[in-house]
Design a protein around this nucleic acid. Structure first.
Lengths: 212, 212, 212, 212
DNA sequence: AATGAATGAGGATTCATTCAT
DNA sequence: TATGAATGAATCCTCATTCAT
């Protein structure tokens, strides 16, 4: 039950190999359908080791998730610490670009997240989802508030709905970059960036404070 | 493999009972983790019958999906055939309301769809997703085009991106109505309708043709 | 969880074969150490069948126990219905003989019982032990009471202790007939009967009402 | 396989800690079901050490047994060296009291013994059982013989059966003090002593030489 | 056509034991 | 000497599928 520190003390290369193999399984199959057999074969380790490291399947999943969350946070930090003093719409465009970079580098992590979203009886689901969503949502909420303070968005903008719309767009945008068949013109990761200005145009008109 | 017509000739009540039990399993667990054992117990039929009717698990899934798709189409038809001659934003609001009605009546169908979205190796995934998405997307695309013809949306609106945004909003809105923890104020199905005017406000300003 | 009736409907020969194989495993190894793998191999059935019949290992154990209890009851009934109107000590001798017959015919059942006795975390232990002990103990208690009524035992006999002693003797006597190394002269099942008169002599003097 | 002397040279406190943890496992679960994993965790030592000290599981068990046997012998010595020159029945009562003290102090040792009794394929079973039983049986036998010499028991007492009965009573009495559900009034360790006079009364009448 | 018994592959997990450090 | 990481065999159990009735 109590995971020991064995895994932590492994050589970095081996740790990464194991995390990667596990992430692949979970991201592709979801939690319940993921097979530890396949996993250990991919990672080239003994089956028993998994249980020595993580206690059980759930512990392995939690570890994979924590590992992934770290990478998400790193990415968010990059965006957040961006010193650029630009208006909110430019920043949103930046964020979409960064998100695209992230899904390009870590497509499996985003898939893991979508499984979490769509599987109601995944273990730790509520705990993990609240953790991961808080990261993203708080960030967007802060962005909106600051923009409101600076007068970059119109006064009568319904904030809750704006936030929801932004989240929906981001999530779907990243999802499209990671899974096929979400719409022609959007399944090609390479050309997705071309759509960003279009989104910004709509958002700016819908939420911004500019006079025509 | 080749499903025969035995199932079709079953009494309606029994057919519905089987479809419902199967839908519950697939919607809750996803394809791979779904158990035919649980399914037949819930439906109160013999396990052998499932294989007689549908050939194998995949066939059963296809049948469940087709069955669900019919209900989606019924719903869409309701909206499409709505004789009301109103502007596109009023119609979008209507569609959100109807969608909410649908997830209220058929929450499992929507969950089935999210599994399909997030599981890349689900059988028939591509085939089924294209089928189901075409229904919704074609409908929205047509809506946009007609609105353009009627001058209800601004001329320079980037159409592809507008379509993508609408889809994203609809999907996320319905997802929130079906699964918990997608944001405070949005997990409560009863009050979700209150947000619709807010969305319309943003969309109208972002896409519409009105002079301030 | 709920065992179905599949097993009950099996041909008698197969049922007996399975019960016998399971009884052997449990009697020899105890509950935890018993292997279903070995069991099914011995019985010549598929592993999955065990779980279809009994749900899980515990269910199998309960079935084996119930099956065995039936045989114990049959035996007890034989003794109880013995119309012989003799004094208690003759009856006790009869009972020991019958018990010996029983362990000769069903040595494994008695071993199962000793495991139950000595393993504190066996599933259903309390439930099963109370059930099985009630059978034997009530019988002995009734025997003593009737003997008291008939004046076959001395008035000042401490009843509780007498009962305990009788149980101890019976149990140990049967145990010795079933497991080796409980004492020279007592490990040989064939000659054990020779000891019965000796026991009766002691008991009669210790508990009886005879004048010397 | 061949145990070295490493364990012997350990500090007394550590040795005792290890023996205690191992005894708990074996006494509660029996040999096969006992887990060295749990054992080392309880003892707070490295798993490898167990194999360094004892070679394998069987060696560990033998060591635990030997360790326990020492304590039994200590107890027996106490009784045997009792200088009191009393008749055999007073001594038997004393022995029951001492036995009760022993199971109170070392309940696990007695449980270990019952597992040994009921598990026919326990390693070293025959070797260990003969060793432990000899201790107790020889002692009782000697007691009986001396009593016979002193004329405390009747001449025609069947000695083998008397010995058997005494052993049965002692064993069952101690077992009842260690495991629940062996009979109302006998599962409560605290009041068990009250039954001793009752037993002695029966034994004395059954085996003694007194004239009424 | 309907049943449900039979099957064995594969699931997660625990285990005693080995061995390099 | 003491450690604890690595291992794979064996554990119970679930599953989709087949097939005789």
């Amino acid at each position: 039950m109590i995971p020991n520190t064995t895994f932590e003390r492994l050589p970095e290369e081996k740790k990464e190999r194991i995390m990667q193999a596990a992430l692949m399984e979970f991201a592709e199959k979801g939690y319940a359908a993921a097979s530890i057999n396949r996993m250990v074969e991919k990672a080239g380790i003994a089956k028993g080791s998994v249980f020595q490291y993580f206690g059980d399947k759930e512990g392995l999943f939690a570890a994979v998730f924590a590992h992934s969350l770290e990478k998400v946070k790193d990415e968010l930090r990059k965006v957040r610490d961006n010193p650029a003093r630009t208006d909110i719409f430019t920043r949103l465009a930046q964020i979409l670009h960064t998100g695209l970079d992230f899904t390009r580098t870590h497509p499996l992590i985003y898939r893991l997240y979508t499984h979490l979203l769509s599987t109601p009886d995944m273990p730790l689901r509520n705990f993990l989802l609240t953790r991961i969503r808080k990261e993203g949502k708080d960030f967007l909420a802060e962005l909106l508030e600051k923009a409101a303070d600076r007068g970059e968005i119109r006064r009568d903008l319904p904030m809750q709905e704006a936030l929801f719309l932004l989240e929906a767009l981001m999530d779907r945008f990243l999802l499209a970059s990671v899974l096929p068949y979400l719409g022609e013109g959007f399944s090609d990761k390479k050309t997705m960036e071309n759509h960003i200005p279009g989104f910004m145009d709509i958002l700016e008109k819908g939420m911004g404070n500019k006079r025509p």
